[in-house]
Lab assay of single mutants.
Amino acid sequence: MEVRTIKVFTTVDNINLHTQVVDMSMTYGQQFGPTYLDGADVTKIKPHNSHEGKTFYVLPNDDTLRVEAFEYYHTTDPSFLGRYMSALNHTKKWKYPQVNGLTSIKWADNNCYLATALLTLQQIELKFNPPALQDAYYRARAGEAANFCALILAYCNKTVGELGDVRETMSYLFQHANLDSCKRVLNVVCKTCGQQQTTLKGVEAVMYMGTLSYEQFKKGVQIPCTCGKQATKYLVQQESPFVMMSAPPAQYELKHGTFTCASEYTGNYQCGHYKHITSKETLYCIDGALLTKSSEYKGPITDVFYKENSYTTTIK
């Protein structure tokens, strides 16, 4: 009895394709271990004539594949690729409408935090270190965002349907971005203890939790000093293409032309909904596939993004 075979390709990165001759009487799992086709788990399936010449994702289970996976995804987590594939199996079914010149995501599976993050990423200057993220990001900007969303979920250790947080998501993504040249110098002034300067680099240099107003941050924000008295913390120097200011959701007025974009969060910790506000020729609110415009805006804002380049204080 002759062994019926077909020729397929296996890959971990969709760049390096490895030619395989597979036995049609055995499952993919018996031949390769966990195997995925377009995100779908085909591990328990036997090869079919229609699979001839198709590319299958496999887990990096030998040295060659491990090197290829690390170079593309910059992670050695053995569960990463499987999590990416199972997320992709959902995100490829989502709709990605162009809204006001940006790629958004039609609401499904509690994905409003991903839509808000995706919209924000198209408006701030950011370059990702893992080629996987950078490639998928370019495709997302062009309207094909399924891979990018699935990668975000995998890097953030999230599953489809789980509630997510924009600030946490951005923080994970910033860790995989090139923020080497970003720098922030802060000064804390206390009447009792004097003053202390701190220099922050990388992710810490672009994120701040405690106030939404970048102007206020430049002037000074009140913080408790270690001595128990009130101290003032203010920005001395900022070198970065953008800054992200966050605070627990509270009524906040966004003035046209003073910011790049913002995240609105309605609801409580267990259950809520994100919308995205962007400042173009007027203010726009993007909620999944829905767009509304207004000249002014007041609502429960939790993150505001500002364009920056270089700032030095005039406070002496």
Rank of each mutant, 00 (worst) to 15 (best):
E2S: 13
E2A: 13
V8W: 00
V8T: 06
F9N: 11
D13C: 00
D13I: 00
L17A: 00
V21G: 07
D23H: 12
S25G: 15
M26V: 11
Y28I: 04
Q31N: 14
Q31W: 10
F32R: 00
G33N: 00
P34D: 14
P34G: 13
P34Y: 10
T35F: 05
G39P: 03
G39R: 02
A40C: 10
A40G: 14
D41E: 06
D41I: 08
D41C: 09
V42Q: 08
V42P: 00
K46C: 09
K46P: 10
H48V: 10
N49S: 09
S50D: 14
S50K: 14
K54Y: 12
K54Q: 10
T55R: 10
T55M: 06
F56S: 01
F56D: 00
V58R: 10
N61M: 14
D62G: 07
D62Q: 10
L65F: 09
V67D: 15
A69D: 06
F70E: 08
F70N: 10
E71S: 00
Y73N: 00
Y73A: 00
Y73V: 02
T75D: 05
L81M: 13
L81T: 09
L81D: 00
G82W: 10
R83C: 06
Y84M: 06
A87Y: 03
T91E: 01
T91Q: 01
K92T: 07
K92N: 09
K92V: 12
K93M: 15
W94V: 01
P97R: 06
V99S: 01
N100L: 09
N100A: 07
I105R: 03
I105M: 05
I105H: 07
K106T: 13
W107Y: 15
D109F: 02
N110C: 05
N110E: 04
N111D: 06
N111G: 02
Y113Q: 06
L114P: 02
T116R: 04
T116W: 01
L118A: 02
L121A: 07
Q122P: 02
Q122T: 02
Q123N: 03
I124V: 08
L126Y: 00
K127T: 10
F128D: 01
N129R: 13
P130W: 01
D135G: 05
D135W: 09
A136C: 04
Y137Q: 07
Y138E: 13
Y138T: 12
R139Q: 15
A140M: 11
A140I: 09
G143Q: 01
A145W: 08
A145R: 00
C149V: 14
C149H: 01
C149Q: 00
A150W: 00
L151S: 05
L151E: 00
I152V: 10
I152K: 01
L153M: 03
A154N: 00
A154E: 00
C156M: 14
V160F: 00
V160I: 14
G161W: 04
E162P: 01
L163P: 13
D165K: 07
V166R: 02
R167E: 02
E168A: 08
E168K: 06
T169S: 00
M170D: 00
M170G: 02
M170F: 09
S171Q: 14
S171H: 13
L173Y: 00
F174G: 03
A177P: 00
N178M: 08
N178D: 13
L179R: 04
L179P: 00
D180A: 11
D180Y: 07
K183E: 10
K183N: 08
N187K: 10
N187A: 08
N187G: 09
V189N: 10
C190N: 03
C190F: 03
T192I: 12
G194A: 06
G194M: 02
G194D: 06
Q196T: 09
T198M: 14
T199V: 13
T199N: 03
T199F: 05
L200T: 12
K201M: 15
K201Q: 15
K201Y: 10
K201A: 08
G202L: 02
V203N: 08
V203E: 04
E204G: 10
Y208E: 03
M209K: 14
M209A: 05
T211Q: 09
T211D: 10
T211F: 11
T211Y: 02
S213K: 03
Y214V: 07
E215G: 06
E215L: 05
G220V: 02
V221L: 08
Q222P: 14
I223T: 13
C225Q: 02
C225R: 04
C227P: 03
K229N: 11
K233M: 10
Y234H: 08
L235M: 02
S240M: 03
P241D: 13
P241S: 10
V243G: 06
P248V: 09
P249S: 09
P249V: 14
P249W: 00
A250Q: 12
Q251C: 09
Q251L: 15
Y252D: 08
Y252G: 03
E253S: 10
H256D: 07
T258P: 04
T260C: 14
T260A: 10
T260P: 02
T260R: 02
C261K: 06
T266Q: 07
Y269L: 13
H273F: 01
H273P: 04
Y274T: 05
Y274D: 06
K275A: 04
K275R: 15
K275P: 07
H276N: 06
E281N: 06
E281Q: 05
L283F: 12
Y284T: 07
A289K: 05
L291S: 11
L291T: 14
T292C: 11
T292A: 09
T292Q: 15
K293W: 06
S294P: 11
S294D: 08
S294M: 15
S295D: 13
Y297W: 09
K298H: 09
K298D: 03
G299K: 00
P300V: 15
T302R: 04
T302I: 05
D303S: 06
D303G: 03
V304N: 02
V304K: 03
N309G: 13
N309A: 13
S310R: 12
T313E: 10
T314S: 14
I315Q: 10
K316C: 14
K316E: 15
